[in-house]
C-alpha cells in the first residue's frame, strides 16, 4: 500500500500535544524575560543577545520535543520552532526555542504577521510559501492559555546562522 505523507498540520497537532506550555513560559529565568531592556539602551544586536539566558531543563525538554516532532514523518522532514509574543510588546514576537534549524525569519524580535497571529488567537493556520509550507499551531499552558505557537516548515530554506 502506498504510504501517504502526513499533512504538516497533522504533524503540528501531534507535536503540540506533547509540548508543555508551562515550560515555554518558564524557558527563561524570570529576571531575563525582558532581556532587551537589560541591554541598557545599547542598540547593537550583540549587546541585546548577550542578555539572553535560559532555564536549561525547560529548554532542553522543549528542544528534544521539537527535534522529535520533526521526525514524526521523515518524508516531510520539516524544521520546528516555538514562537512567543514579547511581553513588553505583544505585537512583536521571536523564536524562543528552535529545533534543527532557525526559521527563515531568523532569531530577531520582529513584528508578527497575520498567519502566526491567528495561531496566537487559537486558530491553527497554514501558510503557503512558494514551494514551501508552514503550519502554525497554538501551544497552551496547563491553564489552557495560549503561550506560544509551534511552527513547522517544510521545503523552505531556514535562516543561515
Amino acid at each position: 500500500m502506498e504510504r501517504i505523507a502526513y499533512p504538516l498540520m497533522e504533524i503540528a497537532r501531534i507535536g503540540a500535544l506533547f509540548i508543555p506550555g508551562d515550560m515555554l513560559e518558564n524557558v527563561m529565568p524570570e529576571e531575563r524575560r525582558e532581556y532587551p531592556l537589560l541591554a541598557g539602551g545599547a542598540t547593537s544586536e550583540f549587546a541585546v543577545g548577550d542578555e539572553v539566558d535560559f532555564v536549561e531543563e525547560n529548554f532542553n525538554m522543549l528542544k528534544r520535543l521539537l527535534l522529535l516532532t520533526e521526525r514524526i514523518d521523515p518524508e516531510r522532514n520539516p524544521y520546528a520552532a516555538l514562537w512567543i509574543r514579547r511581553p513588553e510588546n505583544p505585537s512583536r514576537g521571536e523564536v524562543m526555542v528552535a529545533g534543527r534549524a532557525l526559521p527563515a525569519e531568523g532569531y530577531y524580535i520582529q513584528p508578527l504577521w497575520p498567519e502566526i497571529l491567528r495561531a496566537f488567537d487559537g486558530h491553527p493556520t497554514r501558510r503557503q510559501r512558494n514551494a514551501g509550507e508552514t503550519a502554525y499551531y497554538p501551544i497552551r499552558n496547563s491553564d489552557e492559555e495560549i503561550v506560544g505557537v509551534l511552527e513547522l516548515t517544510a521545503n523552505l530554506a531556514p535562516s543561515f546562522i
Binding site: G49, D50, V52, F54, K63, A81, E94, V95, A98, L102
Partner: peptide, 10 residues
C-alpha cells in the same frame, strides 16, 4: 554555539 540564536540553552 550561542544561546542568542535560540538553538541551544548554553
Amino acid at each position: 554555539h550561542k544561546k542568542r540564536y535560540k538553538l541551544f540553552p548554553y
